[in-house]
Amino acid sequence: MYLERVDLFAGLNDTQVKTLKERSRIRSFAANTIVVNEGDEGSSLFVVQSGSLKAFLTDNSGREVTLSLLDPGDYFGELALLDDSPRSASVIAVTRSEVLQIPRTAFLGLIESDPTCMQTVVRNLVARIRLLTDNVRALALVDVFGRISRLFETMAVERDGITLIDRRLTQQDLANMVGASREMVNRILRDLVAGGYIEIEQQRIILCKKLPQSW
């Protein structure tokens, strides 16, 4: 299980982590299955064990904004451990996925038996909130090119000496992730390809050299 790698629980000892595992369960979801719906009652944290999921928001017109792409070791629904407010976003399984579901009751039981856990989790949660604040700042204050550049930087990995985004992403996927139109993303990608900054092969983006400071 990936529970030991979840930064929210960094600092918990082996016994505390074991207690959480024993009170949790594995759930499987087929591709294109909604795991949680925005507005639903929240009572669990989920840790991705396998597959790929997407957290997103939609408005009344059906327009979608992707908040994050979730891979093994990532987690979502952490606020449900601390309050009983409705879910703030929806999550869908992009591929067949397994998640570890940790009920709020399991977490609260751990806190009651060992109150020192609360300080650890709250400290880690604050770090998570700071990261989300940085993401919101980027959406509000950085132009579309800057948001794409930042996204590439955070998602890029090295594979056999090649820097790439190791995930198939359509232009609409990218648009949803940076809060822009597909047409604007298309124009930026075309210019980056023409300038030799990136190559696109089977919806995978290869970063050939450092992106320019501006578009």
Rank of each mutant, 00 (worst) to 15 (best):
L164H: 08
T154R: 15
T95F: 09
L174E: 04
E199T: 10
E183Y: 11
D40P: 07
R96L: 09
P86T: 06
G179H: 03
L139N: 11
S88K: 11
L108F: 13
Y197W: 02
R96H: 12
V157T: 13
T19M: 13
D166E: 15
S88Y: 09
V122H: 05
V36W: 01
K210M: 11
R27G: 02
T120D: 03
M177T: 04
D143E: 12
I34S: 14
L20G: 03
D143V: 15
V94M: 05
A180E: 04
T33R: 12
D173S: 04
K209P: 00
I102W: 01
I205H: 00
L8R: 03
A30T: 12
P72D: 08
L189G: 00
M1N: 13
L81N: 02
A106T: 03
S85H: 13
L20V: 12
L69A: 05
V65D: 07
T105K: 11
L192E: 00
R104H: 02
A138H: 02
D166W: 02
I92A: 10
S68L: 11
F145L: 10
E112Y: 13
C208A: 10
S44K: 10
E64D: 08
D84V: 12
I102S: 01
R87K: 14
D143R: 08
Q202A: 14
T19L: 10
S85K: 15
R190Q: 14
K209H: 05
T154L: 14
C117S: 08
G196E: 01
T33S: 14
V122N: 08
N176Y: 06
R25K: 13
S43A: 13
F9W: 04
T116R: 10
V17A: 10
V35M: 07
T170N: 03
L151K: 05
A31P: 05
T66C: 09
M184L: 14
R159P: 07
L100P: 14
S61K: 13
E112Q: 13
